[in-house]
Simulated scan of single mutants.
Amino acid sequence: MPGRAKSEQPATPGAGDSLVALEDVVVRFGRVDALRSVNLRISAGERVGFIGANGSGKSTLLRVLNGLVEPIAGSVRRERGLRQAMVFQRPFMLRTSALNNVALGLWLRGFPWEDAKHFAHGALERVRLDGVEHRSARTLSGGQQQRLALARAWAVKPAMLLLDEPTSSLDPQAKREVEALMGEFADSGMTLAFASHNLGQVKRLASRVVYLEHGRVLADLPVKEFFDGPLAQVSREADLFVKGELG
């Protein structure tokens, strides 16, 4: 039986300059182990792509990284004061304007309302949505809503941005727009950790690939080494997944 989860602590100085480190993390939902003894470190400036079949643990791992799910065993250590934001596959849109969807998040963080609106305008411009600020967020297209979610995340200036299948339900043009923004954010120094079934997207955006299978990390390799290496040595399922024969 796994032991009790250790309390979350700031990352230890000198521990590889990790923004976040997981040690022997276990997450269980009912009788199912969603994550099994996961060890993972993410350092500043990395672009980490999580891949694996449905149910492999990608989404759960992202939620642990963001503090939305607590492990029942193991430890999670974050750099002191680490600022993070997360974008989901289908982001929730408040029943108000696109501008207010961004400004409200800043206001809740303590910004005066006028300042929050000012910074929200800048965030919408950053994701190329400056023409829709007064439209209801719920009337925007799927691609526009995902860019609005990116604006909400970018507005809080996170050191690490977590994304769970951010383009899976979008049309090709919207996918390209969201990918372009992810690349721009990473180029500016933001750390990315994202889950994706789109292996082309992982090749384009990730510098490192973490492959999960049944809640375990079976491979953690530089992107070129992962895709060019003999995946059958990782696992048969990994080989089938990359060949597109396992969803």
Results as ranks from 00 to 15, higher is better:
145 Q>F: 01
88 F>I: 14
66 N>W: 09
138 R>K: 05
132 V>Q: 14
89 Q>T: 07
96 T>P: 00
68 L>N: 02
123 A>I: 07
95 R>D: 04
110 G>L: 09
73 A>I: 11
114 E>L: 13
79 E>M: 13
138 R>F: 07
123 A>C: 10
93 M>K: 04
101 N>G: 06
113 W>A: 12
75 S>P: 01
97 S>I: 02
68 L>V: 05
106 L>T: 01
119 F>L: 08
87 V>R: 03
124 L>D: 03
79 E>I: 12
76 V>K: 03
127 V>N: 09
110 G>H: 08
84 Q>P: 05
114 E>D: 13
78 R>V: 02
105 G>N: 04
70 E>T: 15
71 P>K: 03
86 M>D: 04
103 A>G: 06
97 S>V: 00
81 G>T: 00
69 V>T: 15
109 R>F: 00
131 G>W: 02
77 R>Q: 06
78 R>T: 08
66 N>I: 13
79 E>K: 15
104 L>P: 05
134 H>Y: 06
145 Q>S: 03
131 G>V: 02
130 D>P: 12
71 P>N: 12
132 V>S: 14
74 G>C: 10
78 R>W: 03
117 K>H: 09
107 W>Q: 14
117 K>A: 07
111 F>V: 00
95 R>I: 00
71 P>E: 10
112 P>R: 02
97 S>G: 02
124 L>S: 01
121 H>S: 03
76 V>R: 03
133 E>G: 06
75 S>L: 04
145 Q>R: 02
128 R>Y: 00
112 P>T: 00
65 L>Y: 04
94 L>C: 14
104 L>E: 15
66 N>M: 14
125 E>L: 11
107 W>P: 05
74 G>I: 08
129 L>I: 01
75 S>T: 13
136 S>L: 01
104 L>D: 09
125 E>T: 10
80 R>C: 10
143 G>K: 11
90 R>M: 13
130 D>E: 14
121 H>I: 08
106 L>D: 02
83 R>N: 11
70 E>Q: 15
135 R>D: 08
67 G>V: 14
107 W>C: 06
75 S>Q: 04
127 V>F: 10
75 S>V: 06
138 R>A: 06
90 R>D: 13
85 A>C: 15
82 L>V: 13
139 T>V: 03
70 E>P: 09
121 H>M: 11
93 M>W: 06
131 G>H: 07
66 N>R: 14
142 G>Q: 08
67 G>S: 07
74 G>V: 12
82 L>G: 12
118 H>K: 15
141 S>I: 04
